[in-house]
């Protein structure tokens, strides 16, 4: 086994364990911290795929901005005592877990069999396409219109968040 494969398996195991911890912890704050950890592990996986720009914005935007927003809201809301947050395991949840396991097995069987041959190694272009230079070049030429539309989406989200969170007067 090469060093690449070992690193990949360590990263994959860490990300899966932290993802499971996110959905099993009682307190939302602990969940948020594990989710940040999961995002950072994913950023390292992106780095092993030579996607530097995506790895950096994953850390800055996801682990930085979005998760701070989550933490802010969790701390803003008074959710009551920790014992109150305990959830019972009902039959519905067992069915949900069973369905999700079936779904993941289905997806894995689907991707390993039905597509035919998948490429088994990184493209020789992989080291070039992940750089800020190349991403910027593609983003501001071929994907200029979606980029501008994304800015309108963000503007709509800002206004929507302010309107929704505002206290109603009168």
């Amino acid at each position: 086994m090469s060093i690449d494969t070992i690193v990949f398996f360590i990263l994959a195991a860490t990300s899966i364990i932290s993802a499971i911890l996110v959905i099993t912890r009682r307190s939302p704050i602990i969940s948020v911290v594990y989710l940040v950890f999961n995002f950072i592990i994913l950023a390292i996986i992106y780095l092993t795929l030579h996607a530097q720009f995506i790895a950096v914005i994953q850390v800055i935007v996801y682990a930085g901005a979005i998760m701070v927003l989550f933490l802010f809201v969790v701390m803003l809301l008074n959710l009551g005592k920790e014992e109150m947050l305990t959830e019972k395991i009902t039959y519905k949840k067992r069915i949900a877990i069973g369905l999700a396991v079936v779904m993941s097995v289905q997806i894995i069987i689907g991707i390993t069999t039905s597509f035919g041959e998948h490429p088994n190694q990184l493209s020789p272009l992989a080291t070039q396409i992940g750089t800020v230079e190349h991403i910027g070049k593609v983003l501001f030429t071929q994907y200029l219109l979606p980029f501008e539309i994304a800015s309108i989406l963000l503007l709509a989200a800002i206004i929507g968040a302010v309107v929704l969170a505002k206290k109603r007067i009168g």
Partner: peptide, 15 residues
């Protein structure tokens, strides 16, 4: 799939 379990099984809206 772990995300799907979280959406289906947890009752806390933030989680």
């Amino acid at each position: 799939s772990i995300g799907v379990v979280g959406v289906l099984a947890r009752r806390n809206a933030i989680i």
